[in-house]
C-alpha cells in the first residue's frame, strides 16, 4: 500500500517537474512549450467549460480564450505550482462572466442541450426504441435541471459527478473550504432530486 502510494507520488512529482520545465520555457517566450501545456490540458479545460456553460460551441470558445489569457499572463505563473488550478481560475472567471451576460445567457439557452449523453444509449437502441426515447427524454430533463442550478452549485456538481474529483481536489481547484464544496453539492443534489421526482 505504502509502496504503491510512493510510486504514485513519484509519478506525480515527475509530472510536476516536467510541467515546471514547460512553464519556464513558455515564460522565456517558447510558444511551442506553451502548446504542449495546451495539449495536456485542452480536454480537461474544454469539459470543465462544457459543464459550466452547457454548450459545446461556447465551451470550445471559452476554453481557448482561457489559454490565450494564460499565455498573455504567463509571466505571473509560478513554475513550482501546478498549472491547471491557475488555468481553471481564468476559465472560471470567463464562464461566470459569460453566463452573467444577458445576451450570451439567452444564446446559451438557445444553443444548450445535447452536452450530456446516456452511456447505455447504444445498447438500448438495439432492442428497444421506446427505451431510447425515454432515456433521451430523461437526459433532456436532467440537462435542463442542471442548467437551472445556480452556477456555483452547478460547477461543484459537474466537477464531482462528471469529472469524478474528490472533495479535497474540488476545494483546491475552487479555493474554497471543503465544507463549502459539500454544502454546494448537497444543495445541488436536493434541487435536482426535487426536479426529477416522479420520473422513471
Amino acid at each position: 500500500m505504502n509502496g504503491t502510494r510512493t510510486e504514485l507520488e513519484r509519478e506525480r512529482d515527475a509530472g510536476q517537474a516536467a510541467e515546471a520545465i514547460l512553464v519556464r520555457r513558455a515564460q522565456a517566450g517558447d510558444a511551442a512549450a506553451f502548446g504542449e501545456l495546451v495539449s495536456i490540458y485542452m480536454q480537461r479545460c474544454y469539459y470543465a467549460a462544457l459543464g459550466m456553460v452547457g454548450s459545446p460551441q461556447d465551451a470550445e470558445d471559452l476554453s481557448q480564450e482561457a489559454f490565450v489569457r494564460a499565455f498573455k499572463a504567463r509571466g505571473r505563473l509560478d513554475p513550482e505550482r501546478p498549472f491547471y488550478p491557475w488555468l481553471y481560475q481564468i476559465l472560471r472567471r470567463l464562464c461566470y462572466n459569460f453566463t452573467r451576460d444577458t445576451s450570451s445567457r439567452r444564446r446559451k439557452l438557445e444553443r444548450a442541450g445535447g452536452w450530456l449523453v446516456a452511456e447505455a444509449r447504444v445498447r438500448a437502441s438495439v432492442d428497444d426504441p421506446e427505451r431510447v426515447r425515454a432515456t433521451e427524454e430523461f437526459r433532456g430533463r436532467l440537462e435542463s435541471a442542471i442548467g437551472e442550478l445556480p452556477l456555483a452549485q452547478r460547477e461543484v456538481f459537474v466537477l464531482k459527478e462528471f469529472e469524478g474529483l474528490k472533495y479535497r481536489e474540488i476545494a483546491e481547484l475552487l479555493d474554497v473550504p471543503m465544507g463549502t464544496v459539500m454544502s454546494r453539492l448537497y444543495a445541488a443534489r436536493q434541487r435536482l432530486a426535487v426536479r426529477l421526482e416522479g420520473l422513471e
Binding site: Q43, V68, E161
Partner: peptide, 29 residues
C-alpha cells in the same frame, strides 16, 4: 438521483477539434 447521473457523461467533442485546438489558440493570440 445518483442512479441517473451515474449513467450520464459529458458528450465527447469531435476528434478533429483537438487536432486544430492549439492552432486556434495561437491564432487568437
Amino acid at each position: 438521483l445518483q442512479e441517473v447521473t451515474a449513467n450520464m457523461r459529458l458528450r465527447n467533442a469531435p476528434e478533429e477539434m483537438w487536432a486544430g485546438y492549439w492552432n486556434s489558440v495561437y491564432s487568437r493570440f
